[in-house]
Every structure is written in structure tokens, then in C-alpha cells.
């Protein structure tokens, strides 16, 4: 057994709840870190967590580009208020703090599988909402396929909703009439079908949570 294999299996063994708790704690700690020393310590903590959870560092760094706009706005605002050299350092410190507040969320999303998160959320959410959530996750792909079919059928009918035609604002109304409304109606129909199927399988026959054990 290689070290890498042991490390990966160890990362998988950490429960989803623990990972969520660690990442939320790291985010909250970011509020209290105001000095460069504590920020550096928090940076190493985040790196340690990335290594422990076996999160893909390259993808996380790639996603950090979304923070660039925030960083620029914060630094510009600080320079605007405190002047050129004196506003730069506090602005930079605060934007790093801001990144450290949001970074654990990204680490979490890449280290915990949706199924693990769903299990953790079902502890917090009422069981019927957890059921609805799991059904919705299950049907995302199906829903998207149906929306795509509606889109293609409407284009064949002559609706002006292709990417090129949507450059003209006159055609935006077609998106609502030919795509959004049929998709909503389909959503309603699908909800009705699933609820009838669930009822036929005696879902919610008791007040307590029921499950199929066959």
C-alpha cells in the first residue's frame, strides 16, 4: 500500500459533518484575524486542511479568480479613502481576510461528495424536505434534458430563441413564451407525477419517517 493510497482513504474516512464543521470554523476564524501574522497562520491552516481533505489545489486556485473583483473593489475603496500608500496595506489585508472567509467553502465543495453533504443536511432538515431535496438532485439531469427538448422543439417550430437571435432584445419575449412557461408547466406536471407515484408507494403513511426496506 502506497502512502498516497493511505492518505486518500484517510481523507475519505473523515465524516462529512466533521469536514463541514472544520470549514465553517475556518471561515469564522477569518473574522478575527487582523494582523499579517495571524493571516499567515490561517493561510497555513487552510493549506493543511486542503492536504488533509485531499481537495484538488489547482481547481481551488482556479476558482479563486472570482475573488479578484472583490479584491480590486476593496483596495480601490481603501485607496480612495486613505490615500495612495497608506490605504494599500489595510485594503490588501482586508481583501486577503475576505478570501480566507470564502475559501473554506470552496475547499468544502471539492472535498465532500454531494451524497455526504445530503446525509449531513438530512440531520438538520425535516425528513420530508430532505426527501424533496434528494428527489430534486436525482431529477436535475432529467429536468435539464426536458428543458433542452422543449428548447429544440420550439426552435423547430420557429421560435427565435437561438443564441444568435437572442442578441436582438425584440426576441427576448420569445424566451418567456416558448421556453420559460412550458418549462414551469412541465415542472408542475412532474411534481404531480412524482407525488402520485410516492403516494402509490405509501409514502408518508405514518407520521414518522418511512423507508422502503425491500
Amino acid at each position: 500500500m502506497t502512502d498516497d493510497y493511505i492518505h486518500t482513504s484517510m481523507a475519505k474516512k473523515i465524516p462529512g459533518g466533521v469536514k463541514i464543521a472544520v470549514c465553517i470554523s475556518l471561515s469564522i476564524i477569518a473574522f478575527a484575524t487582523r494582523t499579517p501574522c495571524t493571516l499567515a497562520a490561517l493561510f497555513f491552516c487552510n493549506i493543511f486542511v486542503v492536504m488533509m481533505f485531499k481537495a484538488p489545489l489547482f481547481i481551488i486556485l482556479k476558482e479563486c479568480r472570482f475573488f479578484l473583483v472583490q479584491t480590486v473593489i476593496i483596495i480601490v475603496l481603501y485607496i480612495f479613502k486613505f490615500g495612495w500608500p497608506s490605504g494599500l496595506f489595510p485594503g490588501l489585508t482586508l481583501s486577503i481576510q475576505f478570501v480566507f472567509f470564502l475559501l473554506p467553502g470552496i475547499i468544502l465543495s471539492h472535498s465532500v461528495s454531494p451524497a455526504q453533504t445530503a446525509r449531513s443536511l438530512s440531520v438538520i432538515l425535516p425528513h420530508h424536505l430532505a426527501f424533496v431535496l434528494s428527489v430534486c438532485i436525482h431529477f436535475i439531469h432529467h429536468l435539464m434534458e426536458e428543458v433542452n427538448e422543449i428548447y429544440e422543439a420550439q426552435i423547430m417550430r420557429g421560435a427565435r430563441i437561438t443564441a444568435k437571435e437572442l442578441c436582438n432584445p425584440v426576441n427576448w419575449k420569445d424566451v418567456m413564451n416558448c421556453l420559460i412557461i412550458p418549462s414551469i408547466i412541465y415542472g408542475f406536471m412532474m411534481a404531480r407525477q412524482i407525488s402520485m407515484a410516492a403516494k402509490a408507494r405509501k409514502f408518508q403513511i405514518h407520521e414518522k419517517r418511512t423507508y422502503w426496506n425491500g
Partner: peptide
């Protein structure tokens, strides 16, 4: 009714999916 309640909740779930997508 329980079925109607589930139907409404499922529709809310699909709205949530649309927001997410």
C-alpha cells in the same frame, strides 16, 4: 392532503433546481 402537500413541495424543489441551474 399529504399528496398535494408533497406535490407543492416538489414544485418548490424544482423551482430551487431552476435557481441553482
Amino acid at each position: 392532503s399529504k399528496r398535494k402537500k408533497l406535490e407543492y413541495l416538489l414544485f418548490l424543489g424544482f423551482c430551487a433546481v431552476f435557481i441553482f441551474i
